[in-house]
Design a protein around this nucleic acid. Structure first.
Lengths: 148, 148
DNA sequence: AGGTTACGTTTACAGTTGTAAACTCAAGTC
DNA sequence: GACTTGAGTTTACAACTGTAAACGTAACCT
């Protein structure tokens, strides 16, 4: 069953740990602790707990290396990002998602290439985009009169 | 001090309740319970709990109306959506946000008007977009060599 | 070999969340 | 007026989170 396990849930604090490991590709706890102590007011013990939970959750793999472990990501960063964002968006009113994304885009700094890429993605969607997307906050049948 | 209180945190389950109230603008618990029982496998008691928590959190206002209450949103839907999405995005690697957003856009159905609006927003950003945005997963100083 | 380090594990503990039963009381009914 | 009904409140309880101390033990140094 391949890599799978994209169902792993990563909490906010754990996310900080994963970012370190994703960036370094593989590291030991010493490095993770040193780096995170610089970014946060976390005690080493706290960081150890987070690492432990991530291993138990199956988000990090361990490879014994002498007295310690080498940690590597078991789930790909981009997949985790996509899943987290998609979940967040999915729980919102379908009719208002576009506006929310517009606001986020305004506040998010992105490289020119990324901006251009987004424009391309959208341009491709434009022709097939529906005339309107209705509010889906009420059960099927109940017209979500979100208008106005 | 005005409306404020945008700092309120709304959990996933609570979000479902808010969507009902946001859509109806104002309702009683009976309506909320009936609608949510149709969409989920929640018992009335569960929904009552969620409503109670939202009131305590300051997300819903109550107005006594005879034996019961009329509930109205104390925080605007769009603001809640923007905040939730922005928070989610902020916790991710700055360098990879663009790609994540691209993937979400691909999977999100939006009206033609929304798509066009997003294109406009992006077109406006394009000229001032930086050549590149660096990985910010490691503490300042540590070059996040996220490349490749 | 004994002491020191330090890594990973165990235990702790309060707050939030999902889920729900039980209870209190005022309003409506007969 | 007694009885029923239903809205809101209290209590419950396990899992997940944020935060961290304490501990066991293998490796390292002298």
């Amino acid at each position: 069953m391949a890599t799978a396990e994209l169902a792993v849930t990563i909490s906010d604090a754990e996310w900080r740990v994963m970012r370190i490991v994703w960036t370094l590709k593989e590291t030991d706890s010493r490095t993770i602790i040193d780096l995170l102590e610089q970014q946060h007011d976390w005690k080493p013990a706290t960081i150890k707990t987070l690492i432990g939970r991530l291993v138990k959750k199956g988000a990090l793999a361990t490879t014994k290396q002498g007295r310690q472990f080498i940690y590597t990501p078991l789930i790909p960063e981009q997949a985790a990002m996509d899943t987290a964002l998609t979940n967040e968006i999915s729980q919102m009113c379908a009719m208002h998602r576009g506006t929310a994304i517009a606001h986020v885009l305004e506040d998010t700094e992105m490289s020119r290439a990324d901006v251009q890429n987004l424009i391309d993605v959208l341009a491709k969607k434009l022709p097939t985009a529906p005339e309107s997307v209705h509010c889906d906050c009420l059960p099927d049948g109940c017209e979500g009169s979100c208008a106005e």
